[in-house]
Amino acid sequence: MSPRLSRRQIAWRVAQDIPDGAYVNLGIGMPEMVSDHLPEDREIIFHSENGILGMGPAPAPGEEDYDLINAGKKPVTMLPGGAYFHHTDSFAMIRGGHIDICVLGAFQVSATGDLANWSTGAPGAVPAVGGAMDLAVGAKRVLVMSDHTTRDGAPKLVERCTYPLTGVGVVSAVYTDLAVIDVTGEGLVVRELIGDMEFDELRGLTGAPLRLADDWRWLAAPDLG
């Protein structure tokens, strides 16, 4: 099989599916990379849960303003046309169904689109949920970006999540280092597969039944270094 996609390549692949004009919220961590790979001909507005629409990239060194930060508490910039608002309005955007797309990481996704991404339930760990549960139920489409398997090789796409849930039946599609998979009423449907990977091999790395879409195709990502 060909090598798995890098995280940048997964971010690139997610970015291709964000349409012109979309209001988008990127989760903390790996999803933040999506903003680096947007096609240039699209105007996309980024929302940050702490009260920003029209969020721009990180500032130049020395230009940081810690009153202008993203959900990960890192300094960002504001684009012309952007707006500030308070938290309750910000979560009205999220919970009221105004955000078109949210990209989140995951520990597990189930065959019916349940998402587990906030806690491993490990004893002694400090639980922390942030805005994940609001985004999971509120965004029109929840795209998950994740490695296909854990470091130990266990599937992250599973029949039922064993980790504590973030939301029930909320995930629209999963973008992994091996495939693009839609969550449908008839289960998980593989839309794209990385080059030369056998479908049966992907099945072996997945903990829930998979079906190959009639119009499936190879996933070709550019070499992003």
């Binding site: 309750t88 979560f91 919970r95 549960m133 609001d134 139920v137 029930v168």
Partner: peptide
Amino acid sequence: QGTLSERIRAAGAGIGAFYTPTTAGT
């Protein structure tokens, strides 16, 4: 987080309680 913010707002706005899909099933 959204429930936290909305619960605070509700206290300020005289709302007795509210329902939200956030956290359902978790």
